[in-house]
Amino acid sequence: MKLASATLMLSAARVEAERLGVIVCVSVVDAAGYPVAFLRMDGLALGCIDVCIKKARTAALFHMDSADFARVACPGGGAYSLELTNGGLTSFGGGLAVRDRNGVVVGGIGVSGASTEDDIAIGLVGLAALS
């Protein structure tokens, strides 16, 4: 994940959050789950920071969106409590895997602060900025 790509995603996500009238933070991580770029809008509830980072890490480390991860890591799922591994993950929507042109996961983007649906929508706009 290159810094230029990460900042492009942050910028697009911020514009979408402003359009929706919500306050969020956005984290972009590399394929190993390490931070590349981060954005926090003014007035954000500070607990959202850790959540958005964990959403991005979850997507990158497990090569799936955090909403899909939730179906695996929930009670009754095939890997209940998996979110307790890898230094802490999250099992709800707003984390999206970032793939290169060949479909290889190169990182993740995580959004937190709005509804789960808005977090996902904002993340998708961030991803679309790479196309």
Score class of each variant (00 low, 15 high):
Leu130Tyr: 02
Lys54Gly: 01
Met64Phe: 02
Val105Ser: 10
Arg40Cys: 07
Met41Lys: 03
Ile53Trp: 01
Ala129Met: 03
Val24Pro: 11
Val51His: 06
Val98Gln: 03
Val125Arg: 12
Ala129Trp: 00
Gly93Glu: 05
Ala32Gln: 12
Pro75Tyr: 00
Gly95Tyr: 06
Ile23Arg: 15
Ala60Cys: 03
Val105Gln: 05
Leu84Glu: 10
Gly93Asp: 07
Ala56Tyr: 06
Thr85Gln: 13
Thr58Leu: 04
Glu16His: 14
Arg14Gln: 15
Gly21Arg: 12
Leu61Ser: 02
Gly103Asn: 06
Leu20Trp: 10
Ala129Cys: 03
Arg14Ile: 10
Ile23Ala: 14
Met64Thr: 08
Leu127His: 03
Lys55Gly: 06
Pro35Phe: 02
Val29Asn: 05
Val22Glu: 15
Gly113Glu: 10
Met9Gln: 09
Gly123His: 09
Ala79Pro: 01
Ile122Val: 13
Gly107Tyr: 05
Arg40Ser: 14
Gly47Tyr: 07
Gly78Ile: 05
Glu117Val: 13
Tyr80Glu: 13
Ser27Thr: 10
Ala17Cys: 13
Gly95Phe: 03
Lys54Leu: 00
Leu89Trp: 01
Glu16Phe: 09
Gly43Asn: 04
Gly94Tyr: 06
Ser81Tyr: 09
Ala121Gln: 13
Glu117Gly: 07
Ala67Phe: 03
Cys74Val: 10
Val105Leu: 07
Ala45Asp: 15
Phe92Cys: 08
Arg99Gln: 12
Arg57Ile: 00
Asn102Glu: 14
Val22Met: 13
Asp100Gly: 07
Met41Ile: 08
Gly113Pro: 11
Leu10Glu: 09
Arg40Phe: 01
Val15Trp: 00
Leu10Ala: 11
Thr85Ser: 15
Ser115Met: 12
Ala79Arg: 14
Val22Ile: 14
Val51Pro: 07
Val26Phe: 05
Tyr80Pro: 00
Gly76Ala: 03
Glu18His: 10
Gly87Ile: 04
Ile23Tyr: 06
Ala37Trp: 08
Gly93Trp: 05
Ser131Pro: 00
Gly33Val: 04
Gly76Lys: 02
Gly77Cys: 08
Val22Gly: 13
Leu82Gly: 01
Gly77Ile: 05
Ala37His: 09
Ser112Phe: 10
Gly110Phe: 09
Gly126Cys: 09
Ala6Tyr: 06
Val72Met: 13
Met64Gly: 01
Asp119Leu: 06
Gly107Pro: 11
Gly103Tyr: 07
Leu82Trp: 13
Ser27Arg: 04
Asp118Gln: 15
Glu83Cys: 04
Phe92Leu: 09
Gly47Phe: 08
Leu130His: 03
Ala59Arg: 02
Glu117His: 10
Gly126Trp: 04
Ser115Leu: 11
Arg101Asn: 12
Ala31Tyr: 10
Val24Met: 13
Leu127Ala: 06
Ser115Ile: 11
Met64Ser: 01
Ala73Tyr: 05
Ile120Val: 15
Ile49Ala: 05
Phe69Val: 01
Lys2Pro: 02
Ala45Ser: 12
